[in-house]
Design a protein around this nucleic acid. Structure first.
Lengths: 249, 249
DNA sequence: TGCTTTTCTGCATGTTTGTGCCCCCTTGTT
DNA sequence: AACAAGGGGGCACAAACATGCAGAAAAGCA
């Protein structure tokens, strides 16, 4: 694995998990702790992360702290969310999984929106507390604290009984050839299931993730109905269009 | 747990509770009192907190924060939570439903606690995000936004498959003659079910609720194994004791 | 393709940091 | 004044770290 690639991976992990421990990273990325330390040192000097003894912290507040939710604000994600709003109509049955991008989207939804939301993510569910005309159905399971979603056999089986109009998928990694991938197998399983019970699937990605892969493949990109992003490299855009995926609105 | 992370947590706790006792922090964060003292000393020298004998105080007014946190905090509830801690041991299967008192209790649980937690409340589930040795199982259902718990037939049926050692019940109303009651029938149903699948039941109530009734009866008071409260009117206490309920620790 | 230069990585070394424990002094309480 | 609880400082140990070095991998170049 290239150094640059590895460092991008570290940033991605840190975006999801708000803290990382050098020794853990060493195992996850299969390099020595020395290398990880050098990476962290470098990323810190670039001001991207905050280096601390035994690991590093993300700059900015943790995501799961709900009271600080305003601060997960991010210009790009906000733009994506606003584009996605066009596909969400009253009386839909929405299936929404976890991730900060999805959380951002939910916060942009009009309070007057009517419909049903199915989710396996406690933070997403709570974000609807003020939407009086939305019925929220939570899918239970074993809480996967890293990304704050419920997973496991129970989640899978409950999903079997459900159908949705639109699945709003939180995407970690996507690549035109290999498809959508995530770092954990149990998450991949649930996402795949969610895709299969939904009529349409909508994904949002920042352009820097448009050609990244992770360990576990969820599905090919052509399972997506909509892929929302911005400032796409034309080459990559062409690759996606070859698969019949309309990029952007 | 990283040092920086721990210190941030101390600051957060202090924002909620305006004063902290070193020995309490030691238990909650599962580190020695020496370490806590060093943390407090450090934070004080940075001017972030005010160190005092046996603990620390918040400097200045609380950070403005619209969240429900401040509403949660309450001296009495904190005391109740601390008493309840005595009944919670490692390796237990805990069943916890919603309510601010329960949330308060969860915040007091030592980070090193091991075991399993079953809950139908998203905020309770999320409150365990830092407890690395606790497996959280969320029970799904229809989100009842008023009290942020999942309810309904799906919740009921999932509970059928579960067993717990101790059920920590959030109590709205209790009365020695009429028993425990809540304002909604679906909540009553679920609470009753939870009682039936648990070996022991623990309730916490502030003394002003000790003789109040609501529309829907959950169960008689003698379904409780422990009832924790404080400053009880002796007359009322006698009424409870007549039913075989030990009041206070 | 083959060669050189540069960058990157893992290991070995000695150093620093973080934490718990202990002793003994200080503070607050009764 | 007596006594318990809290606190300072030193010690010890483990984990994390910086550094130098040598071999491997990548990049540049002919």
């Amino acid at each position: 694995m290239l150094k640059q690639e590895r460092q991008q991976k570290i940033i991605d992990i840190l975006n999801d998990e708000h803290k990382i421990i050098a020794s853990d990273l060493s195992k996850r990325l299969s390099v020595s702790e020395d290398t990880i330390r050098r990476d962290l040192k470098e990323l810190d000097s670039q001001g991207i992360i905050k280096r601390v003894h035994s690991g590093a912290l993300r700059k900015g507040p943790p995501v799961q702290d709900f009271s600080t939710r305003k601060e997960i604000y991010n210009e790009t994600k906000l733009n994506l969310a606003n584009k996605a709003l066009n596909y969400i109509k009253d009386e839909m049955v929405l299936l929404i999984d976890g991730g900060t991008t999805n959380l951002q989207l939910v916060h942009q939804l009009p309070l007057s929106l009517k419909g049903t939301v199915i989710t396996n993510s406690p933070p997403i569910a709570m974000a609807f507390s003020n939407h009086t005309d939305i019925e929220v159905i939570m899918i239970g399971g074993t809480l996967f604290k890293q990304s704050m979603v419920n997973l496991g056999i129970h989640t899978y089986e409950t999903l079997n009984e459900m159908r949705a109009d639109l699945y709003i998928m939180g995407i970690y990694n996507i690549d035109p050839e290999n498809g959508i991938s995530v770092p954990s197998s149990s998450e991949a399983l649930i996402k795949r299931k969610m895709t299969s019970i939904s009529n349409e699937v909508l994904g949002m990605v920042t352009n820097d993730k448009l050609d990244t892969i992770s360990n576990h493949i969820v599905c090919p990109t052509d399972h997506l109905t909509y892929l929302i992003t911005e400032n796409v490299n034309p080459d990559i855009k062409r690759l996606y269009e070859k698969q019949g995926i309309a990029i952007n609105d």
